[in-house]
Amino acid sequence: MLVSNVKGVEECDGYPLQLEIEEMRTEETEFNAFVHRMLPKVRYDALRIAAAAAGCDLPEALDATDEDALRRVHTALCDVHVVKGALVCPKSGRRFPINNGIPNMLLHEDEV
């Protein structure tokens, strides 16, 4: 799920944030319509990069009718939980640590 968050994140005009993983776990969840609703909201190229960091291989271009590809997207979006790691802004190099599966996006007042 966090991967979808990574997609949603934009900081200091830096996007997408790079995902660094120290610890992760995979939980099987039921494949459902969630993927279809979620797809228009995420940038697929960014999702692919993040998924690659998590060890999921996604096809280069996505065909919405391809069931197998959609299942792989679902695995990347829903089943992979990054427990510990960091998100790194490509532009400023700012690191946002992830602990217990919760990314810490706090900035200091003078960084805004």
């Binding site: 949603g8 934009e10 900081e11 829903c78 706090l106």
Partner: peptide
């Protein structure tokens, strides 16, 4: 299904989500 996510962030700094 748990399709929910949590982010630690201060809303006064602007929300860190894509448009």
């Amino acid at each position: 299904d748990d399709d929910d996510d949590l982010v630690q962030h201060d809303m006064g700094l602007g929300l860190p989500f894509r448009d």
